[in-house]
Computed example of a mutant assay.
Amino acid sequence: MKKGKRIATGAVTLVLLAGLTACEGMSRQGRNTAIGAGAGAVGGAVLTGGSTAGTLGGAAIGGIVGHEASK
């Protein structure tokens, strides 16, 4: 079961990083929000052992921090 979570976490990380390449036309604040959400999702997944709630919570917190930091 742990191997499946690691593969899923790795896949989510790759998708998020690939999604960041689409940030070229975004505003600075939008880009920082997306980067914060991606980093928060990875951090939340790592800290909670890959739980869905931890990943989503990390993404939400990271997105808020990224959004507010660029004001």
Rank of each mutant, 00 (worst) to 15 (best):
L56P: 01
A41F: 06
T9G: 13
L20C: 14
A8D: 12
V15M: 11
V42Y: 08
G4D: 06
R28F: 10
G62S: 06
G10C: 09
I35G: 04
T55K: 08
T52F: 07
V15G: 10
L16F: 02
G63F: 14
T21P: 13
Q29K: 09
L17E: 01
A11E: 08
G38N: 13
G36F: 00
M26D: 02
L56S: 02
I35C: 03
A11W: 14
A22G: 15
T52R: 07
V46N: 06
E68K: 14
T21A: 15
G50M: 06
R28V: 06
S27A: 05
A8Y: 14
A37K: 01
R28I: 05
R31S: 00
R28D: 09
G40F: 11
I7N: 13
G19T: 03
L14F: 05
I7V: 12
A8S: 14
A41M: 08
R6G: 11
A8I: 11
G4S: 05
G66T: 01
S27C: 04
I61E: 09
V65C: 13
K2V: 09
E68A: 14
I64V: 11
V15P: 06
G58A: 04
T48Q: 13
G44E: 05
L17C: 04
H67L: 15
T21K: 13
A59H: 07
G4M: 05
K3F: 05
I7G: 10
I61Q: 09
T9W: 14
R6F: 06
G38M: 04
A60E: 10
L47T: 15
G66W: 00
V65M: 13
G36R: 00
T13L: 12
L20M: 15
T21V: 15
G54S: 12
G19Q: 02
A69M: 04
G25M: 02
G62D: 02
G19H: 05
G62W: 02
V46P: 11
T13G: 09
T55R: 05
K5W: 15
G57N: 12
T55Q: 11
S70A: 15
S51T: 11
L20D: 12
M1T: 04
K2T: 07
S27V: 02
